[in-house]
């Protein structure tokens, strides 16, 4: 299985990541570093975060893949970092957190670059009843981005937070997947999302280390999916996205 949404713990994997994964049958972890979880990281902080992620990929070959984390407010230099990470360090996608809304025009150059790489874009998205961050995207923002860029491969994280409404909003956009990661374990949510979107658009992730890997996999187990759907959600969908970006590697080269 593939855990498609993890984070580093400090500057490396949480020490329990691989052993816990081994107990559960999870062999590949796709993640990003958000460094100190500052909503508006400086350019230097994103560089540090991505350096840490690159090191984790190097230290755990075949077990870890990485997203490049950007703050779109940093413009061209940050875009260049995204290019370097994908073209030279083997990163497989783009991670957007809460620095800007995901449909802010500042984000567009990154999305256009990701399209060229066929790289997935993991968007933190959460509609919250309380504690919403100022630039925290919701399914509406994801849908708007997906409509503007139908070629983009977008993963809406956390089932969009408030799952039922989020799923309704992204349902028309075939280029949007939803990941199941996070601490919430709401009853029947994963099963409902699979029923509405189809198993091909749902991806298992945990959001470790702040969320528990087993708890998150348990949400998928509890959805009572068919064997085929379970495999799509826990492996094949993310494998497809990773394979696509890897097969495309080398075809798009930045000229410095």
């Amino acid at each position: 299985m593939i855990d498609a949404h993890i984070h580093l713990y400090g500057s490396d994997l949480h020490p329990e990541t691989l052993s816990e994964g081994s107990r559960l049958g999870i062999t590949l972890f796709v993640g990003s570093s958000l460094l100190n979880y500052t909503p508006q990281p400086t350019y230097e902080e994103t560089i540090q975060a991505n350096d840490d992620m690159a090191k984790a990929i190097r230290n755990h070959p075949g077990q870890v893949e990485g997203y490049c984390y950007v703050n779109p407010r940093h413009g061209h230099k940050s875009l260049m970092d995204f290019r370097r990470r994908v073209e030279e360090q083997g990163f497989i996608g783009l991670k957007l957190w809460i620095a800007t809304l995901c449909n802010d025009p500042l984000v567009f150059p990154y999305v256009e670059q990701a399209i060229q790489y066929k790289a997935p874009i993991l968007v933190h998205a959460w509609k919250k009843t309380i504690s919403q961050f100022p630039y925290e995207s919701t399914a509406h923002h994801v849908a708007d981005l997906a409509a503007r860029y139908p070629e983009a491969r977008i993963i809406m994280a956390h089932l969009g937070g408030q799952m039922e409404s989020a799923i309704n909003i992204i349902e028309p956009y075939e280029n949007v997947y939803a990941d199941t990661s996070g601490t919430p374990i709401g009853g029947s949510e994963v099963g409902y999302a699979v029923k509405r979107l189809g198993a091909k658009r749902i991806i298992f992730g945990s959001d470790l280390p702040f969320a528990c890997m087993a708890s998150n996999l348990g949400k998928i187990v509890g959805a009572n999916l068919s064997e085929t759907d379970f495999r799509l959600v826990t492996y094949e969908n993310m494998k497809f996205l990773i394979d696509e970006v890897k097969q495309n590697r080398g075809l798009v080269k930045t000229v410095y």
Binding site: I185, G187, A214, S215
Partner: peptide, 17 residues
């Protein structure tokens, strides 16, 4: 359950080292 997914906690207990 049924407000939450029972298997989330069940798997935590099952797989814990």
């Amino acid at each position: 359950t049924p407000i939450q997914t029972a298997e989330a906690t069940i798997l935590q207990l099952s797989a814990a080292n």
